[in-house]
Amino acid sequence: MIGKKLSRREVLTAAGAALLTLAPGVKLVDLAVAASKTANASKDEATDNLVRWGMLVDVNKCADGCTDCVDACNDEHGLRGQNNHNSRPETDAQYIRVLDIKDKTTGKQYSLPMMCQHCETAPCVDVCPTGASFRREDGIVLVDKHTCIGCRYCMLACPYKARSFVHENLTDQVPTTPRGKGTVESCNFCVHRVDRGEQPACVEACGKLGHQALLFGDMNDPDSELSRQLREKSTTQVRDDLNLNTGVRYYGI
């Protein structure tokens, strides 16, 4: 109808046709499913639960004062406040952070990276009213920002303080990490990289300087390096009293 002069008859016909297809959605869904099936067959595959992505943090190898993983994460996801630098630390997002820990009794000190632990029974997934907070089949805990209403209940429920709320308008987002005002977000194991068969940005950065404190892999594959190390070393889950079966394990604490 656009860009063409129409006779009255044509207008009437078009209006009638529009009335006859009052519920176009039904047909469109089929179309979209068919389209997606072809896309699948030719290209990438859906995730499945044969894989469970996990990470091992070797605290002994985590270098003092090093923030390479944090910088790489901020870079990868374009995390920064409105004014291009951390002008409002209390409301700016952090996906991964370095915790400095000191034992009050013995005086032993160490540092470790803390982020979303990608729990099997994640409290954030339980409490989310719309189901926006969910766990992918391969164990990665994500927020579907299209259905997140910004109630922030997941932030109250998370035992690891892993989540941030976007407190301001954002521009210039990184294409692979869509993020915007009014929704909650957290470490997503760099899911766009994982889907491409790559490592999360923090793991890659930690390896660059040879620290190798972070190891990423498939916990379900008994032959993976991650599974081998998890089998051999006595690793810890943070807040293991909650029995959340975390995807991130720590060695040396």
């Binding site: 997934v125 339980d126 409490v127 989310c128 009213p129 719309t130 189901g131 926006a132 259905t147 997140c148 209403i149 910004g150 109630c151 922030r152 209940y153 709320f165 976007v166 005002k181 009014g182 929704t183 909650v184």
Partner: peptide, 25 residues
């Protein structure tokens, strides 16, 4: 107070029945 009050319709159409918030709705 929601971050996305414009998505109230999402809260009405998507439910996670394990969520106490959803029960409260």
């Amino acid at each position: 107070d929601l971050g996305r009050p414009d998505r109230l319709i999402v809260a009405m159409t998507h439910y996670n029945f394990k969520s106490i918030f959803a029960w409260n709705v």
